[in-house]
């Protein structure tokens, strides 16, 4: 291996040989499928089994003509916003304690514990909540044990159950991104602020929050996007109340077999996410 060099003769072949296979794979398995999906979204029916679809905007029009899809989209956006909100409220203080209040070997161990669920099986973690939340489940029995009486929790198969499950799934993302940016804030800055008489709240508001904004935003994006596209979590924890844009898209592919509509809804979903980020960027930009 040698240090990075500029344009030696014959290196084009080496570059092609090294990057070619990986990018060919990415093209076949990601880029072409997404392009094909985009193409399908403009067809009247999927060009499969001898059928030929015709060019149409009907799939996109359906979204705007049938209020049902719009309502679901808004419901999904609201779900995304709520999950992001709770992840931030729960995760930021946690990252703060980890980054600035715990030191040494303890910090390393606790940090690992927090992100351990980060990669572990998402499906299984969602499933584990069913036992907690269902009627006469662990949570209800625990509450009953503390406050005996006829207190019914029964939030399984509700919107709230979906929020709890998703917050549980994505909380480590927020903790991780906030932790990374908080760790980069030097202790000197905090001590300088203290020497000038700043209270903890002032330090949080004027130094820690502004300086960890990139991490917070990264967490927001990392959570918001997959939550909008989630379908497994609402199906398991939401039951009949778990209908969101993600589950409708899934239905188009696995139950209704209206692929062009599913494709169009997917791109509308991506578009909505894009619009939300563009708007929030505008709002943030105006503030400072």
């Amino acid at each position: 291996m040698t240090s990075p060099a500029k344009g030696a003769p014959g290196q084009a072949g080496a570059i092609l040989a090294l990057t070619g296979p990986a990018y060919l794979w990415l093209t076949v398995a990601i880029l072409l499928p997404l392009s094909a999906m985009f193409y399908f979204s403009f067809l009247s029916e999927a060009p499969l089994a001898g059928k030929t679809g015709e060019w149409t905007l009907a799939n996109y029009r359906a979204f705007f003509e049938q209020g049902f899809y719009g309502t679901l989209m808004l419901r999904s956006l609201r779900l995304g916003a709520e999950v992001v909100f709770w992840c931030f409220v729960l995760g930021f203080p946690c990252a703060l304690v980890l980054a600035k209040s715990v030191k040494g070997r303890w910090r390393e161990a606790l940090f690992l514990l927090v992100i351990l669920p980060f990669w572990s099986n998402a499906l299984v973690r969602i499933f584990s909540w069913t036992m907690m939340l269902r009627g006469n489940g662990i949570l209800e029995r625990a509450i009953d044990w503390v406050v005996p009486g006829r207190f019914r929790l029964d939030i399984m198969f509700t919107y709230e159950a979906v929020v709890i499950g998703l917050v549980h799934s994505y909380l480590p993302y927020m903790i991780l991104t906030c932790y990374i940016s908080l760790q980069a804030v030097q202790d000197d800055l905090i001590e300088a602020a203290r020497s000038m008489g700043a209270s903890r709240l002032t330090i949080l508001r004027r130094i820690l929050l502004p300086l960890s904004l990139p991490g917070i935003l990264a967490g927001v994006v990392l959570i918001f996007v997959p939550v909008i596209g989630s379908f497994m979590e609402p199906r398991i924890l939401g039951g009949r109340n778990g209908t969101f844009i993600g589950t409708v898209i899934e239905d188009q592919f696995t139950a209704v077999f209206n692929w062009p509509l599913g494709a169009a809804l997917s791109f509308i979903m991506l578009g909505c996410v894009g619009v939300v980020f563009a708007l929030s960027r505008l709002a943030l930009g105006r503030r400072g």
Binding site: Q186, D188, L189, E191, A192, A193, R194, S195, M196, G197, A198, S199, R206, I207, P210, L211
Partner: peptide, 28 residues
């Protein structure tokens, strides 16, 4: 420290990168 009224200058200077010179000086 925050209740002692001490002015401190750090080896790293510890200027707040998110604030202008004015806001840094005005902080206290």
């Amino acid at each position: 420290a925050e209740k002692r009224d001490v002015g401190m200058m750090f080896q790293s200077y510890a200027l707040f990168p998110n604030m202008s010179v004015f806001d840094n000086v005005a902080f206290g």
